[in-house]
Every structure is written in structure tokens, then in C-alpha cells.
Design a binder for these strands. Sequence first.
DNA 1: CAGAAAGGTTGCGTCAGCGCAAACCCGGCA
DNA 2: TGCCGGGTTTGCGCTGACGCAACCTTTCTG
Lengths: 242, 242
Amino acid sequence: MGHGMSEQKTPSQNTVRAICALGLVKGLPPEVAAHVASLARVDVLPGGAGVFTQGAVAQRAYAVLVGAVRIRQIGSDGAQALMRMIAPGEMFGTVALFTEGYYPADAETAMPSHIASWSKADFMALTMNSPQIAINIIGMVGQRLANVQNRLREMATQSAEQRIVHALLMLVEQSGAVQAGACEICIPLRRRDVAELAGTTLYTASRLLAAWEKVGLLARSRQMLVVRDANKLRRIAQGGLL
Amino acid sequence: MGHGMSEQKTPSQNTVRAICALGLVKGLPPEVAAHVASLARVDVLPGGAGVFTQGAVAQRAYAVLVGAVRIRQIGSDGAQALMRMIAPGEMFGTVALFTEGYYPADAETAMPSHIASWSKADFMALTMNSPQIAINIIGMVGQRLANVQNRLREMATQSAEQRIVHALLMLVEQSGAVQAGACEICIPLRRRDVAELAGTTLYTASRLLAAWEKVGLLARSRQMLVVRDANKLRRIAQGGLL
DNA sequence: CAGAAAGGTTGCGTCAGCGCAAACCCGGCA
DNA sequence: TGCCGGGTTTGCGCTGACGCAACCTTTCTG
């Protein structure tokens, strides 16, 4: 991890609770979950800090407890794509431990965050010793796979406008906080992020988002995007421009 | 499965060997592999037969022993995308057993095929009882995930031409049979298949493939595509149109 | 508080690729 | 042998969205 700017802790009261709520330990008795938590390391990072880099040897598995993480892939031609945003309660960097052993993307905090992580050895041991954990992992990865496949199909068949809307709806699903009919996406998003998520350009994303803000469909409040009318968004997602 | 046109067998000598070579049982002692094989059902299907359909409740996990299978997803708007072609030795329809429980796509044979399959109960039991199998599954799914993510990035950033080339190279990787410098893709591919794989239209795919055939980069031999110069293809994949 | 840096907006010209429509090829079958 | 049907090719017009360039706004930082 560190460039020295990280503050490291062993799990405290709060973080233990957060770790025990992870999908990883779903269906497990509390004492096992506690054991999993006891093996974790917790890093407190500022925004914009790198967690791991594409191509590095996979040493640890991670989970976001507080904050948000950007997972970005860079092609051999230099083109970038935002694979996903990680919200609190989600894991990342786990698959590489089980496959070729190299992280397939960059990971950096999108805001000040608390990141839990486990060493490869510990994580593999947990998996070997608990079939339930193994199955939980398969479930998580399978979920991701289904999600990415959907995006792939959309990318192939839908317009830039529709893809952006889908990206927004996905983010709402993932970390939406309802408040007075509207719904705030609790992840800091720059235009560039939206564009890369939806597989379009900064310019197109900016144009569309600005237009939607003008109409009152969206709003910005302190770095975050607020969806004011999800249903109207959904209509755009399906019907296209009608 | 069946519309009555399938011929069902219990594993024979040959099929047992094929099943024991699956990634699923990698690193397992032979007797365990044999046990896995003994639980399998084998269907002999003609080309164009449906194996399962999108949205159906996931009952079984599958593997192709002989032949090829098309995995196609259809969006709510009716747009189709070819998620992957399955070559002999690969599994499909497994993830749904661990997630929501519905197949996320259609599966149909692209040619006469032998398909092995396991019931959900058997498959889950195997996973619960053997950590190694669980880890193998995670590895397989992880591999797929990495692959799909790459395609997603390419889809977002590259030209139709480059995406088609990548699709071809992937297929070569997956089921290429070398013969006299050239390399045959042992999966029947229609223009439409290539188009949907690469996320472009039938028309664009046809134009490009025809052009490459004219130049001698590609050829067709009895339903199959033959890559005559993989290196030149790779150059197109990277450099674009130069 | 000034100045820099990072992010956001927008006008405008351009073109890759879409998709209709019409023709073509070819293997199977009566 | 001739017809039928699925797959393929290709001409042509159209447009979504790309991307440069220039400018504006907000957020750091010393």
C-alpha cells in the first residue's frame, strides 16, 4: 500500500462490526466472522491514494468499510476504462488471488476511506477451511460477472445516452441514499468517471449530464450527484430519446 | 433440455476421460475425478439445439465435451449479444447455481455436440465437500470475469475493426487448430456471430471479413474460419487502420 | 488573497459505422 | 431441375458522437 500517508490500525469496535456485515461471511456463525475480522488489517487513506496498481503481484484482498474506491483499467494503447466504483461493504482485488496472480486494474480511493485487507495466505486459508466462505466468494464473483456481462451487452447495443443512464441507475442501486423523494449517489463522480463508466467520452457525458441538470432530472450537491427523478431516468434508459 | 431429439447416455470410456480433463477437477486425485464423472449425465445433441434458455431456473451445470455452444443474451429491448462461444473442455451455466438461480442467457449448440451436465444438488455437494473444487470454480469464474472486463474495455475504447480482430484472436486462442502456418477456428461462425461477439452490426462485420478474405488474411473452409496470418491480424488489433 | 491547477462547458467540423434495400450465393429438397 | 430459405454482399445516405479548441468555474496551495 503505503506512500507513508496511510494510518494503519488493527480492527476497532466499529470496523469489526463493518467486517462482520460483509457478504464474505454471510451465513457464518458470529465467532467465525469475528475471526475473519481479527485477521484483517485496516488502513485509513486520504482521497486519491493508490491501493494497488494494474499488473502488480496480488498480495492482498480488500474491502471498503468507509469511503469509495475507483477500479480503473488501462489498455496497452493507453485508453482507460472505469471498471467499477466500490462502495462501503464491497470487496475488490480478491479474484486475482485465485487466478493469474496479478491485479488486472488500478485501485485508488475516490475520497477519504477506511480499507480492510487480508493477506493472500490468510485469505486462501479461510477459503480452504470454510466451504461457506468459498461459496460466498463464488456468489460475489458470479454477481460481478453477471453485472459486467449486462454492461457488455448494453455497450454493444445501446446509445451513449442510454449507457450513461444505466451507469447512473447502477450507482443509485449500489449506494443510493434516499432523501425526500430524491436519491443521492454517495460516491464522488467527476464527468470523466461517468464517461469512462459508460464507455463514452468526457464531452458527450458532460453535455448530457448538464442537459439533465438543466431540466431538473439531476443535481449536484457537494461533489455528489443527486437523482431527482429516477423514474424519468428509467424511461430514458428504455425508450431511448422518446 | 430435451425436445426429445437428444440421445442420453451415462458416461462411457471416452467421456470419462474428457470429464477428468476439465478445469473443474484440476489438482484432484483421480478417484475423485472419476467420482465427479460418475455423477454426470451426457447428452448427444444435434446442431442448433437449445440447452437452456435465459430466465429459466438454473437446474444443472454444463460442460462441452465435443462440439460447440453459443451463449447469447437478449436485452429487454430485444437486442442480442453473443456473450461467448464454448469450446470442448469448457463449462457453462455454472454461475447461476450460486447466484440468483436463473440462467442469464440462452445456450444452444452451434454444431452436433456432446454435453455433460450435473444436477444442482450434486454440484453443490461436490463444492461443499471439496475445497479444491470450490477454488477451481473461483478460478474459472475469475478467468471469465477478467476476460469479460477486457472485452468491456475494448468495447468502450476501440474501433469496430479492432474489436472484430480481438474477437477472432480470442477464438483462435480458445480453439485454434494449427495446420501449415494457418490456424483454423474449430467453431462454426456466421457473420452474425462475429458481429454480435464484437458488438457491431452484421453489415460492418461482413464488409471487414470479406475484405480480409480478399487480401488473404482469412479464408473459409467448410463453415469454419481459417486465420492465415495471425501476426498481421495482431498488428491491426493494436495499430488500428495503419 | 493571488495564482495555479484541476475540472467542467460548449461551438463546430468531421467521419466511422449504422442500417435499409436490393441483389446474390448456395445447399437442400421435392 | 427448379424452387425455396438462410446466410451474405454491397451501394448509398444519414447521423450519433467524437474530439479539438477555447473558455469558464471551482478547488487547492503557498
